[in-house]
Design a protein around this nucleic acid. Structure first.
Lengths: 216, 216
DNA sequence: TACCAATTAATTTGATCAAATTATTTAGCT
DNA sequence: AGCTAAATAATTTGATCAAATTAATTGGTA
């Protein structure tokens, strides 16, 4: 325990690392994860990795089989419907709340992220796209300052992360039209309704893409 | 490790135990919990208790302060609004799905639970009321067989559990009118709309009670 | 070759311990 | 007395290890 000046506990940072692995498609649906493998890959002890896995499991990003094996869950049609229901309820609400509190600085940051998204799409950079897309959405949601809705939303995103990776692998990134331009425009003009509508459409499109990779 | 024939891992059962402590009001909002204290009280090792705490923290039932202290969060108005929004969206939906799949056996079980609720109210048995009320709702929700909605709902219930205890302590259990009779009637008659409406009203009432204990 | 039992390897699980961090108490000073 | 600083106690944190469980492999038999 030779940590000189570490502020946050290790299981916290490890949790974030593993979460981002799931969120940004570094792990594939169905892929089994060993606790030692993760510890070795990250370069950490086994104990904090276990705690992080429990947390992610609670949020749905991972699942423990009855054999105690830890895997990345594979999306089902049934799940997708439930996720869409809640996303369409919570995220537009978060967007409205966020839009009302959004500073100009935030808007500029969002436009920068939107540019990053476009660039990633052009380059076919899947990981870059997934990450920038995530940051875009949650920059708005964070502005809403609604912890519980934010937590719920995040738990839904970790569930769809691996599937989005599959979507990109199947269709490529070029087919992705984004509603983000509309959203940022709405934010600039103070047109909250437009923001809400853009987000709704964005969610519907994303869910539809995933749906197509399931019912193959 | 002298477990003869234990099926589930220990952190799993400990998680359930602590969750029920939160759910049924055995811990008070603001109350700090030490990891050793819990381990001792439950009669378990420290490691599985830690894992259980991480899980409950991820679900919102507990919270870790910046000092790493673990506490039962105290409800705020802001949180209550968010919880109500999601509950009113998800739980009636779960009720509808559950009602459609509800066997007669389930209906009988629900009527039994409803009787338990009445009895607990008469006796002023707070813990009994909270537990029976929980079982009643989640018996319906479980019938819906919608894992994700169920998980979200459960995470909201662990957030309001401690507050409900406060509600009962303040107002007693006698003031609690229940919508459960209406719900079971609807289930028997196959009147899904009635079930949905009863649940909505039940949720609104519960949230209103909690609201009154906050804005004192 | 195909199939099944037995052995071996890999992994999870939970206890224990030292180090680090935080909370509490005591002592000293004005 | 009142307040600050040092010392003590309590708690968390992460590594390590033995036991248990599960997966993989080997060997034997029909």
């Amino acid at each position: 325990m030779n940590k000189i000046v570490g502020k946050k506990p290790e299981h916290e940072t490890i949790y974030v690392q593993i979460k981002e692995m799931v969120l940004f498609g570094e792990v594939v649906p169905g892929q089994p994860l060993t606790i030692h493998g993760l510890a070795e890959k990250i370069g950490a002890g086994v104990t904090p990795v276990r705690e992080a896995i429990r947390r992610l499991t609670a949020e749905g990003g991972l699942a423990t089989l009855e054999n105690r094996r830890v895997v990345v869950p594979t999306m089902t049609m049934h799940w997708l419907e439930q996720i869409e229901l809640v996303r369409l309820t919570v995220e537009p609400e978060l967007a409205v709340m966020g839009a009302e509190k959004c500073s100009l600085g935030k808007v500029l940051e969002l436009e920068r992220l939107d540019a990053l998204i476009d660039e990633a799409i052009r380059k076919g950079d899947i990981r870059g796209y997934l990450e920038a897309n995530y940051r875009f959405h949650f920059t708005i949601y964070d502005a809403a300052d609604a912890l519980i809705l934010r937590r719920i939303t995040e738990s839904l995103w970790v569930r769809i992360g691996p599937s989005l990776r599959v979507v990109c692998g199947r269709f490529g990134t070029t087919n992705l039209t984004d509603q983000h331009r509309e959203a940022t425009k709405g934010l600039r003009d103070g047109d909250v309704g437009k923001v809400k509508q853009a987000l709704q459409e964005d969610i519907r499109q994303g869910m539809e893409f995933i749906r197509q990779t399931i019912e193959n």
